[in-house]
Design a binder for these strands. Structure first.
Length: 431
RNA sequence: GCCGCUGUAGCGUAACCAGGCAGCGCGGUGGCCUGUGGAGCCACUUGUCCGAGUUCGAAUCUCGGCAGCGGCCCCA
């Protein structure tokens, strides 16, 4: 019988090199949790359908892995993490002092067509701040996003940033109701302006709205001052929109103060998730056309779940960061010692030495095969082992081992305590 | 959902355009060589994604399916 492809479309087996690279990225994310005071949590992979029907956005909603479980419940594999995290905070953390800073590293699932940087199961990290309205919190999320890129050695990135509040304030000004706003912003996000304008055109004050939105959409600039000046011009008749714009200006000013990298201000930028209310952004790597991180402010989402608390956050895509990293692989953890027992009588010494080395924290392999010494050495060499301990008839007699340095080829005969002493400097420190 | 490219042993590849014995590398197994030749040598191992068509003859050309990769759309 021949096995067919037993891996599902869009799913991946992660081999040692790729997995090591992903671990490196997760490690960097967790390091930032500590530095910025985020506490890591985990939520269920499977969630009730309602949780994501609230405010996920049409695009994501119809790409969910969705099924009825054996108890008759309508469930989904989480298509993203934010809704779950908000639920966790709302349901379990009401007595924790604000602001609450939550971090996570989770997988998520979307039934998209697989392509470059897109898989049906993917991993994202996340940083979410609850209970802070200040632009300082928005700026901190940008700062973290920037530090993450630098921490991974990715220099050529920029942050595309816009403000959902500005767009919504403008639409509110023309009394356009929220569900229509969601649809229109969704279309603008997809650059389908004509369709968005058709919808607006059919409304009472639609014509004026179209002019404003079109003007905003045209403002895309790497120079924040220029972008804000032009936007201020466009919005001067709409005080609430001017307030929202001021919020974005402050956020960028604060972010600049903490050395956040290059911005691309895009006033026509909207995101596919309906829950955003303020600043929104995506991080791009030049010459890689896909976003590696995205986020923004969502002050109303928690309220829908029963606790009206403002929030801002971001979700870096771990698989995509891996694609963006210059280093193709990260160095493997080197093994320090391999013990080769050439005769049965040597096995007891091998077991004893291996036990002592491992208790000391020295990464150690035992050769189980009793193959030719030369073949065992070949294996040790390919596995990047630093030292080989050989035990043959003579060593059994003398109660010693021969320790060979694989780098230099030199070797010496030692008692096992001396081997442990010599290799103890390679001990992995306890976590 | 639509479009393009690709599919050869466990893995990586050659032969495909221009139809004619499917070859190589790595790996695995067994063996030879006094216990370090990090080797070498010998033997074995295993394959044209699935299905139809054209042809004396198909890995090769045609059609369909499936899958992988990538593009559109959207996102992480």
């Amino acid at each position: 019988m021949r096995e067919e492809n037993l891996t599902l479309r869009g799913m991946r087996n992660l081999l040692p090199d790729e997995k090591a690279k992903l671990n490196r990225i997760e490690g960097e994310i967790r390091r930032l949790f500590k530095i910025y005071g985020f506490q890591e949590v985990e939520t269920p992979t499977i969630e009730p359908l309602e949780l994501f029907e609230l405010k996920s956005g049409e695009e994501i909603r119809h790409r969910m892995y969705r099924f009825t479980d054996l108890g008759g419940r309508e469930v989904v594999l989480r298509p993203e993490a934010t809704a779950s995290i908000v639920k966790l905070v709302v349901q379990e953390m009401r007595s924790v002092p604000l602001p609450i800073k939550i971090g996570y590293v989770l997988n998520a699932f979307r039934y998209d067509e697989p392509q470059y940087g897109r898989y049906r199961e993917f991993k994202q990290g996340g940083f979410e701040i609850f209970g802070a309205k200040s632009p300082l919190a928005d700026a901190e999320i940008l700062e973290i996003s920037s530090r993450l890129m630098e921490g991974l050695g990715i220099k050529d990135y920029y942050i595309k940033i816009g403000h959902e509040g500005v767009l919504r304030a403008a639409l509110n000004h023309f009394s356009i109701e929220e569900s229509v706003q969601d649809r229109v912003l969704g279309l603008i996000d997809k650059e389908r302006l004509t369709e968005a304008f058709e919808i607006l055109g059919s409304l009472r004050k639609g014509g004026e709205a179209i002019n404003i939105i079109r003007s905003l959409w045209e403002i895309k600039s790497r120079d924040p001052d220029e972008a804000f000046r032009r936007t201020g011009e466009v919005l001067k008749e709409i005080p609430e929109a001017v307030n929202q714009l001021e919020n974005l200006r402050e956020i960028i000013e604060l972010a600049k103060a903490s050395k956040v990298g290059e911005f691309l201000i895009d006033m026509g930028f909207a995101r596919g998730l309906d829950y955003y209310t303020g600043m929104i952004f995506e991080v791009y790597v030049k010459n890689l056309k896909i976003a590696v991180n995205g986020g923004g402010r969502y002050d109303k989402l928690a309220g829908l779940l029963g606790w009206d608390v403002p929030a801002v956050g971001c979700a870096p895509g771990i698989d995509r960061l891996s694609l963006a990293m210059d280093e193709k692989t990260v160095p493997r953890d080197d093994l320090v010692c391999m013990i080769i027992s050439m005769v049965k009588e040597g096995d007891i010494i091998a077991a004893k030495l291996a036990g002592m080395l491992r208790l000391t924290g020295v990464p150690t392999l035992v050769d189980y095969t009793r193959r030719d010494v030369s073949k065992a050495l070949s294996y040790a060499s390919k596995r990047n082992v630093k030292y080989v301990a050989l035990i043959g008839g003579r060593e059994v007699e003398a109660n010693t081992v021969v320790l060979k340095n694989m780098g230099t080829g030199s070797q010496e005969e030692l008692e096992i305590e001396q081997v442990v002493e010599k290799l103890s400097s390679y001990s992995l420190q306890k976590a």
